[in-house]
Design a protein around this nucleic acid. Sequence first.
DNA 1: ATGATAATGGACAGTTTGTTCGGGATTGCG
DNA 2: CGCAATCCCGAACAAACTGTCCATTATCAT
Lengths: 196, 196
Amino acid sequence: MPREIDRRAARTRKALHQALLTLMLRKGYEALSVQDIIDEADVGRSTFYAHYTGKEDLLRSGFQMLRDELKDPRSAGAAAAGGSHDDPLGFSAAMFEHAARYADHYRTMIGGRGGAVTENEIRLILSEMVRQEMPPTLYGDAIPRDFVVQFIVGAFLTTLNWWFERKPGLLPSEVDAMFRGMVLDGLSPLIGDQPR
Amino acid sequence: MPREIDRRAARTRKALHQALLTLMLRKGYEALSVQDIIDEADVGRSTFYAHYTGKEDLLRSGFQMLRDELKDPRSAGAAAAGGSHDDPLGFSAAMFEHAARYADHYRTMIGGRGGAVTENEIRLILSEMVRQEMPPTLYGDAIPRDFVVQFIVGAFLTTLNWWFERKPGLLPSEVDAMFRGMVLDGLSPLIGDQPR
DNA sequence: ATGATAATGGACAGTTTGTTCGGGATTGCG
DNA sequence: CGCAATCCCGAACAAACTGTCCATTATCAT
């Protein structure tokens, strides 16, 4: 009883996901039509709608697969999932390295080019990573953990975007150092520090 | 020789901008069609295309007007434009207050609901504000000013979004305190602070 | 008043979207 | 192997949206 996979269906879905990725690299997400996708994937129109309700559904399903894969312990991608719990930014260095290697893909996903859905999905994935690495106790209950997580994720994406747009020549380690400096100690080391 | 304004054209444009704002509040930007806009504005189809190339053009033009207005010294909105130069986050308190008062509008613009163009335009406006308030000298040239500006803007938008989504009950002053705390001093006051 | 400018409504071809259908191909399983 | 279940295909469809054109009417500036 193969619970769910017909090879044909699996091939079709893989072809569609592949086509989506290819076309996003080429034209960006917003500019894509379902027509483009099924042409690229060489799949019938009705077949597409038999699997997904539209291009957004296809995109979401792709991220769902990615998230499942990251969650899977026996996956290679779970390298940083050790949850060291002593460095709340433990993920950053590896992520910047990864981003440098797959710059094209990151560029299409980050900074608006990927659309609102993509941005949101990426935030969810990163939030999960950051949450696992964050120490369970924070001095002073004035700042909710949840806010801290969002703050870190936002800062990371900002850094990534700035890197790609303004200083693509920098090394991952240099960018990581800037990121960690800003997030850990904030602005005060950089300015006169009078006001507070 | 009135250099550019025919009253009819002005009325048409105003109606279109008004319609766009109304519909964005109701349905969000992405879901809008040009058809919706001209119906709401009660303007002929050909008239629309005589003024703008599409809905994105209309949106951009709206932000252009806003930016000009903010730049204008005799405008009321230029209250914080004094460029105090001693507090790099001087803008924040007033902005959080403003956001609380016009929460509906902010919600439609922030957090994906406004589309990539809106997000980008808002970043441009905020970047300009932050840049003006930032001291011209930073200790250590390791961190580019430009990066700091983006970092602050990103943190502000993250904070705003978190506020709306998770804790809409908080007071502007409370949110501002959290924002300033995180941006000025970073994470280290909150954690064990061993690693560095 | 009058020439210039703008708005109108309608029509147009070209896309895109979702849906439906019957015929044909592949698959899983006995 | 053989066969029924499942999936894919191609075509066609109505509906909606997009830009662009034009002839006509209304409004403007002076």
